[in-house]
């Protein structure tokens, strides 16, 4: 994980959507939210979980690796940036290669957009918008030492297991104290659970129009 980074604790998330609103309000995003907030088991539980870009370190940024247009830049500080607007062709490779389900795509604008750790803020030492407004500390920004000063003895993990493929990330997640040092489950393979939550914006029909944007 990076020095100063985001640490997520889904156990603290109350699903208030403050992070989504704050992300949308950032004037470098123009009303688009890059963060995802998912209700994990709608109808069964109030559990929710925020997802920012995990800034994969090893293998480094699968989204950037599969990009056919060399549009995704990874800066030396480990931040995986959103697509370069002059290069992105809106193919969606990054959207579907990302094991975390992070990048979004605007089919009409032929442009990907995703969390860039609020580079406009973090490169000046400010916390990202989501971490700034999170009322419960579910999204924390800082170093591990700063996190431990607030939450003594807290442990974090920054590797994920996707059915045998291990990915280490720049963003970390809180794990219970005393948990053996092993990767977090990625939810693939044996850990895959069929989730029954309805799509928030309604179900899309599997037609070509819904994946091509405007065909011509």
């Amino acid at each position: 994980m990076m020095g100063r980074t985001i640490v997520i604790d889904p156990g603290r998330c109350i699903g208030c959507q403050a992070c989504v609103s704050a992300c949308r309000e950032c004037d470098s995003h123009r009303g688009k939210s890059m963060i995802h907030l998912d209700y994990l088991d709608q109808g069964g539980s109030v559990a929710s979980s925020p997802t920012v870009c995990m800034h994969c370190e090893d293998p480094v940024a699968p989204c950037a690796q599969v990009c056919p247009a060399e549009a995704i830049l990874v800066t030396p500080d480990g931040v995986v940036h959103d697509a370069d607007k002059s290069r992105c062709i809106g193919c969606g490779n990054c959207v579907n290669a990302c094991p975390m389900g992070v990048p979004k795509i605007d089919l009409e604008a032929k442009l990907q957009f995703k969390c860039n750790l609020c580079y406009d803020r973090t490169s000046y030492g400010l916390a990202p918008m989501c971490a700034t407004v999170c009322p419960t500390g579910s999204i924390f920004y800082g170093t591990l030492e700063e996190l431990r000063a607030e939450r003594p003895g807290v442990e974090v993990a920054s590797t994920f297991d996707f059915d045998g493929s291990i990915i280490s990330t720049g963003v970390a997640m809180v794990v219970p104290k005393g948990r053996p040092d092993q990767p977090l489950p990625g939810g693939a393979g044996e850990h895959a659970r069929v989730t029954g939550s309805p799509q928030p914006a309604g179900h899309l029909e599997p037609s070509a129009d819904n994946v091509l944007g405007e065909p011509l």
């Binding site: 994990l40 088991d41 559990a47 290669a97 990302c98 094991p99 389900g101 990625g186 693939a188």
Partner: peptide, 26 residues
């Protein structure tokens, strides 16, 4: 990138599955 089979799961379901796995096993 050996997790290519995940390309056949939509981004939202990837997040939900990972969240559920965290919730049930971590």
């Amino acid at each position: 990138l050996d997790f290519d089979s995940l390309a056949e799961v939509c981004p939202r379901c990837k997040r939900l599955r990972r969240g559920q796995a965290y919730r049930t096993t971590v």
